[in-house]
Computed example of a mutant assay.
Amino acid sequence: MPRLHALELLPDDAGHDVVRRDWQALRDAALPSQLDHRGATNSPHVTVVAAPVLRAEDQQEAYDLLGPLLPTGARAAGIALLGGRRVTLVRLVEVPDTVVRAVLELRARVADVQHPGWLPHVTLARRMDRSDVSRALEVLGHDDVVITLTTLRRWDPDAGIVTTS
């Protein structure tokens, strides 16, 4: 499977710290955590679109559609599980309708988008055994947190380049 190019929304420093606290709490409980991901681009983010190829026009359209909407408040709310036998644990992120519309418009223009629709979320842990989920929920708690999404980032895995706006 090809490595996917991505356009992502990044939180401000306070939002970054909120997510990293979740990552640290999972690690402290000896559970899988995104802190275990050692990649240079690993930071809290909400993926807008992931595709095998992103054209320069796709990136420009993302800036044109989303740039005027940033910064925007978002609520890191409920927790969800994605996947099958081993799951990805995520915190769902509620964003304003204007952002949802802009993202869906962008996604309609990008070829070969992975995953239909858009489920805004921040990944907390990947490849978690289902037997660890209840303990992870206890560790994370249930508080909703307001964060601010401030920056659009592009990840080009082929060139190993991260670009932010």
Rank of each mutant, 00 (worst) to 15 (best):
V87K: 12
A108T: 05
T123P: 09
R130Y: 10
I161D: 13
D36M: 07
T47Q: 01
R154D: 07
R85Y: 04
P157D: 05
H45N: 08
I79H: 11
T98E: 15
V103L: 06
W118I: 05
W155P: 04
L9W: 11
T47Y: 02
L70N: 07
P71K: 13
D144F: 03
L104D: 14
R86E: 11
V18Q: 14
V53H: 08
R101H: 14
T41E: 13
G73R: 15
H16M: 12
D156A: 03
E138V: 12
V93S: 10
L149A: 11
R154P: 02
E105H: 15
I147W: 12
G160E: 03
L149E: 12
L92D: 09
A74Y: 14
L70M: 06
V18N: 08
A159M: 06
D158L: 08
L9P: 07
A108N: 09
L81G: 11
G15N: 11
P120S: 08
P52Q: 09
L119I: 13
I147F: 10
V145G: 12
L26Q: 07
V145E: 15
D22R: 09
S134V: 14
R55P: 00
A111L: 03
G15M: 09
V53Y: 08
L82C: 07
D36P: 04
V99E: 10
P32N: 02
D132N: 06
L70G: 06
L106G: 03
V162I: 14
V90I: 11
T164F: 04
Q24C: 01
R153W: 06
R21E: 15
T150I: 03
A80D: 14
R20Y: 10
L4V: 07
L26Y: 03
H16Y: 14
A136S: 10
G15A: 12
A77E: 13
S134D: 15
